[in-house]
Design a protein around this nucleic acid. Sequence first.
DNA 1: GATTAGTTTGTTCAAACAACCAACTCACAT
DNA 2: ATGTGAGTTGGTTGTTTGAACAAACTAATC
Lengths: 394, 394
Amino acid sequence: MSSAIRNRMQLHQQNIQSVLAEVFNHQPISRIEISRNLALNKSTVSALYRDLKEQGYVEELGEGDASNVGGRKPVLLAINRRYGYTMNFDFGYRHLHVMQNNLSGDVLSYKQVNVKGLTLKQILPLINDELASVSAKDNTSHGLLGISFAIHGTVDHNQVTYSPFLDMDHVDLADYYTQEFQVPVLLENEANVSAVYERDFNKANDQLKNMVTISIHRGIGAGLIINQKLHRGTHGEAGEIGRSVSIDGHWDGAPRKVEDYCSEDAVINQIQDEKHATNMTRDDVVRLFNEGDEVTKSALAAFVKNVAGIIYNAANNYDPDIVFLNSPLLEELPELEPQIEQVYAKMAPSILVPIKLTQNSHYATLLGGCSLVTREALGMEDAKLNFEAQTSVL
Amino acid sequence: MSSAIRNRMQLHQQNIQSVLAEVFNHQPISRIEISRNLALNKSTVSALYRDLKEQGYVEELGEGDASNVGGRKPVLLAINRRYGYTMNFDFGYRHLHVMQNNLSGDVLSYKQVNVKGLTLKQILPLINDELASVSAKDNTSHGLLGISFAIHGTVDHNQVTYSPFLDMDHVDLADYYTQEFQVPVLLENEANVSAVYERDFNKANDQLKNMVTISIHRGIGAGLIINQKLHRGTHGEAGEIGRSVSIDGHWDGAPRKVEDYCSEDAVINQIQDEKHATNMTRDDVVRLFNEGDEVTKSALAAFVKNVAGIIYNAANNYDPDIVFLNSPLLEELPELEPQIEQVYAKMAPSILVPIKLTQNSHYATLLGGCSLVTREALGMEDAKLNFEAQTSVL
DNA sequence: GATTAGTTTGTTCAAACAACCAACTCACAT
DNA sequence: ATGTGAGTTGGTTGTTTGAACAAACTAATC
């Protein structure tokens, strides 16, 4: 209510942002096309564009093709790729993933840094090294625009509220880097940024209003896009479906959680226990499965069933247009996905929600963070922005 | 994006609606107060109000008190209660509930009509009787403004897509009454309207962004308010939590649903079976429980546990500010509610979501429908409107 | 010449503003 | 007690402002 447009100034600001969003989403695009898309007079668009150009956000790319019945060639406009860059991090269990992106979401660099067993205070200097080395090579006009961190855990008010494997050492990342660089710094749950990635980087999802991204890593969480907005919940804990318990009419004491049965960790541990092995990794499971190991096959068969059940429950809870699975294990064993779909199809009464695997899950979390922090840098949190999907770079 | 305000006309329309919303939410209110609340110039508010008065939506109520340091008395403005009325129906298992409301949400009349065992085609004449008798007594300027129906089942695109106990007989209610009266006609799931009731009629929830209303009747469903908007899902099936299945690592065949364990029906049937009785009703269960019957006590103890589990799962799925329970059984046995809270508190790790019983659940569904259809009549679907909570009338 | 892209110049109209009137409170003098 | 005037607040009236718009222009193409 209080954010509603009420006077000419606010209207003007919003129209400027609408033009910027059009350039973002349809670049390269001409003024006249923006005018048609937004139902704004072409002279209005020209004036608004002039403002954006003065700020440096956009630039002309040269001329496009004229219409085939004659007429002046349009001037193609685009986001200024040399305006500045964002730095996006993902605190994985083994690696710190580091990505540098431009304003348009293009990947400028990507790197993995081994951090297994390190504490956050030991990781901080490594982050600073990355920031410094990127900064040294930078030739953009505005430099660093913002920093995002994908957190495997829950986040509220930019603070980590639960972190299963990385000890936060009472470090306030947001405060530290905001002080240091005077740019937006953003912490967000990994399933949430993954969901934002699907919304903003995947053109196939452009028209979808509701999406659920189920992330199966060491735990299980869902990122929720509801009405094209990220739903974090009141305390940033929406979609913590891994904590769900079974309602079966007669349980006692502390009931077991979904995560205990079918997170990647749970599957690996189960196989490890049954085979009396130690220190097994995902790669071991993949290898065993491909070798036809019976223990592994049966564990993964149960995994398939359980994931199907989780999808079924998510479909009933959220009724999305689509469900994405972000799971490194499934990414390496894609043949399991059709099996999941089959089991799910048997459970669902009428409506079948499409299921897809998130491709390149490392990139997804980083790009989702990139979207969120870029939006914050532009003050365009709620606009519809389609970023480039240049995941093939590098 | 396409619905964004872009020109002066749209801005003007929105500001008119903002003024109307202010009158709605804070009536009686003066022009100067609206001006301050909306940060609009007082002359602008006067002009916008003039428009609304010409349309008949608002009226002056007389003068208010002057400030205690002197100054002219304000003129108090309010919604015109004689503008028109809405008719709101709830298809219960035993009764058809009928409510007439004015533009402000005040209850003008309420009635239950016995419909047990009747088909929809037999109920239709009864509905028409109610509409006719209300219309005959009407003295408003615009008469019938809209009709809403609360459906115990799922609804998509104003069509019933699933109806567990009432056979819809292929009747298209929306089409039939729109043709007949040329007013908005609205069908909505009963848990959803109940959630809308909590949002719009309960002033205590004014600031809450996310709410879950769990409806436990013959089935179990949840109405979801997310970011202060009703989330219906892509097919109107969001919140169908009664269909959730247990993920326990080793199930086969069709797994049992939550509804099978702890809907009101399931509880009654279980007690009935164990006591070898027939045709038991909720009242019988309440009586048996109050008489200290052991079978009933143990069934309700399991019910308490299961409801706590459902709340816990809902909290993890949606992370709301509050959970409401709309359950006639709990309304009649309110002493169970603290027990539910206790079991839930033991399960939840850190964040405890407040739990409340929806008071007067019959009224809740009707008033929720009233809100939705009134909004449609006014073209103010997305505005924040606080309706009056005159549930004590009658 | 017909057509399309973009600019310039002047118009429009809803919100903001300024100045006003209306009606009240309170302090103080009578 | 009562009359008066200064100060305050609610609301209206007439004018100004400024962002979108419209029309007439230039530029560049078929």
